[in-house]
Amino acid sequence: MKILAINGSRRKQGNTSILLQSILKAADQAQHAIEMISLGDYRIEACTGCEGCSGSWDCVIKDDYAELIHKLDQADAVILGSPTYWYTVTSDMKRFIDRCYSLIQYPHNRQQWIGKYQDSHKVCVTAAVCEQPEESMMGNTLTLLSDFSRDIGLQLIDSVAALHCFEAGRVRGETTVLEKAEQAGTMMLQALER
């Protein structure tokens, strides 16, 4: 099985990365193929709303986005993670999500759409980190990642929130959160094996 973890943080050894690694623990122990990417390493231009992807699954903007979608196409499971910047995901993650407009089609009207991965049996876990101790201060970070995953047709298995984590590595001290992350990773694998 192929597991793709997409990190919206530019801190490559930061809290989001640690959280994603905890989710990946079960897959690593089972020796599945794992790839963790940092969106900051890719050139992803802003969506222009040109509708050039209408009628296909392909974005017409030529940058690194197509490479990311190829990885997504090949994955059996996807983990989406982002720290909270001003009550939402990072700009790297938001640009990626906006460009994934190409992964939905409107066959009949604008009120109903089909996600590219609908009925593909691809599964997803979402994860978010927030500096503040209250989940309300996370804004829509986790709900945006989760809603997005469902919209493109991924089966959402679980979501993990790490609160009160600012300094790089702070989440290592949050044993309850890390245990929840490992459980989410185990549930993800169980869903794939069904």
Rank of each mutant, 00 (worst) to 15 (best):
K2L: 09
G8K: 02
K12H: 11
G14E: 05
T16K: 02
I18M: 10
L20D: 01
Q21A: 09
Q21E: 06
K25M: 11
A26C: 11
A26K: 15
A26R: 12
A30P: 00
A33W: 08
I34D: 03
I34S: 01
I34P: 00
I37D: 08
L39F: 09
G40E: 10
D41E: 13
A46K: 01
C47G: 05
G49P: 02
C50D: 09
G52H: 05
S54L: 05
G55T: 08
G55H: 06
W57D: 00
W57R: 06
D58C: 15
D63K: 05
Y65H: 10
Y65F: 13
E67V: 14
L68G: 02
I69Q: 09
H70A: 14
K71T: 08
A75I: 05
V78Q: 04
L80S: 11
G81L: 06
W86A: 12
W86H: 13
Y87R: 15
V89Y: 03
D92M: 08
M93C: 03
F96Y: 09
F96Q: 03
R99D: 02
R99W: 01
S102Q: 04
S102M: 05
Q105C: 11
H108Q: 14
H108V: 12
Q111V: 07
Q112V: 07
Q118H: 13
S120H: 06
H121G: 09
K122M: 06
V125M: 02
V125K: 00
T126K: 01
A128P: 01
V129G: 07
E131T: 14
E131V: 12
P133S: 12
S136E: 15
M138P: 00
M138H: 00
N140D: 12
L142W: 01
L145I: 12
L145H: 05
L145V: 13
S146N: 12
D147E: 11
S149C: 05
S149L: 04
R150N: 12
I152H: 02
Q155M: 15
Q155S: 13
L156S: 06
S159W: 00
A162Y: 05
C165F: 07
G169L: 13
R170G: 07
E174Q: 14
T176Q: 08
L178K: 00
A181L: 04
A181H: 01
Q183R: 14
Q183W: 10
A184C: 07
M187R: 14
E193F: 05
R194F: 09
